[in-house]
């Protein structure tokens, strides 16, 4: 029982992070019916920015590589939260710029070129981050109390404060997103563009600008997700690569166009990973390596039985 609870909590921990990144994926997908493969790398980049702003680095590598810009890094007297907030703002601007410069010139109904561009971005961001900051993992501070004693004991299992905090942050993020999407004019325009781009244009919505807004939101929340996961995974350019697969699985399970689906999908994938793979791992430790395969199986199963996902809307082709 204790072990089960522990795995449940671990699953919720992972699930929250999958959910945050899945929400960012869903935002882009809703607006453009495109999967943004660069989402994870954007988040990684944003997390590095938070790191630079927040951490007083004795990080020689960091000050060395950025030394050419004669810019002392890590000197800003930012608290971690403020740093993450500023990094989110910078990410939002970057996301908007990417939409404007790299995505908008292409025909939105022709998916292949745009998907290739997001794949290219994935590689570019990854290698540029590697060039700037090298691939050594860096410890990233947690927003929450994360000492060895910081947990709530439930039935002998440890529910760590970081898990509670991660869920709280995600709750706030969803609340913010809900507010933006349902209570603001920009949010209404975003939902209109998601629902029917052509009609949105016909009511005077500037579609390009609205998509920029979607990219900005997604990039900002991606950075928040990255900052939540970095204390656990350590910050390095490849941090998000595996995470992105699980987040894809989460988004697919929930339905690629459903924000609630992304959250439920995140929990589902997190739990499947920690419980199923955990117990299989008891049986044979080698099974733990298969957790990526389990994520893929989840995607496959959903696509077989309910292609629109648990909460997604089955799109009817309009003629």
């Amino acid at each position: 029982m204790q072990l089960f609870l522990q795995r449940l909590f671990d699953g919720l921990d992972n699930g929250a992070v999958y959910a945050v990144v899945a929400v960012a994926l869903v935002l882009i997908f809703k607006a453009t019916t495109l999967v943004n493969f660069a989402q994870g790398e954007l988040a990684m980049f944003g997390t590095f920015i938070a790191y630079i702003l927040a951490v007083e680095p004795d990080d020689a590598a960091l000050s060395y590589t950025l030394g050419w810009a004669s810019w002392e890094v890590g000197f800003l007297p930012f608290g971690l939260l403020a740093a993450i907030f500023v990094a989110m703002a910078i990410s939002a601007a970057t996301g908007a710029a990417i939409e404007r410069v790299l995505i908008r010139p292409f025909d939105p109904t022709d998916h292949l070129p745009v998907v290739l561009i997001t794949l290219g971005l994935f590689l570019i961001l990854n290698s540029v981050a590697g060039y700037l900051w090298n691939f050594n993992p860096r410890p990233f501070p947690s927003m929450f109390a994360s000492g060895t004693d910081d947990f709530v004991s439930i039935g002998g299992a440890r529910l760590r404060h970081t898990v509670i905090g991660t869920w709280a942050v995600m709750g706030l993020m969803l609340l913010a997103l809900w507010f933006i999407l349902t209570k603001t004019k920009a949010g209404l325009a975003f939902r209109a563009v998601s629902s029917n781009t052509e009609s949105a244009r016909l009511v005077g919505v500037r579609v390009g600008r609205t998509l920029m807004f979607g990219w900005a939101l997604a990039a900002a929340f991606g950075t928040l997700g990255g900052s939540l996961v970095a204390p656990k995974l350590f910050l390095q350019p490849n941090m998000m690569a595996t995470l992105l697969i699980f987040s894809f699985a989460a988004a697919t399970v929930g339905g690629l166009d459903s924000l609630i689906g992304a959250v439920v999908g995140g929990i589902t994938i997190g739990l499947i990973q920690s419980i199923l793979v955990g117990y299989l791992g008891d049986y044979d430790p080698a099974f733990i390596i298969l957790s990526l395969a389990v994520a893929f199986l989840c995607i496959l199963t959903v696509l077989w039985f309910k292609p629109s996902g648990l909460f997604g809307t089955a799109r009817v082709e309009r003629v």
């Binding site: 209109a192 998601s194 009609s199 244009r201 016909l202």
Partner: peptide, 30 residues
Amino acid sequence: VNLGLAHVPQGRGTFPELSVIDNLEIGGYV
């Protein structure tokens, strides 16, 4: 559209995933 022209497209072109009231509010977007 901002100059004061409104177009009801063929096949209606409503926003199926939005509520009736949201459809009307986005109609007043300009």
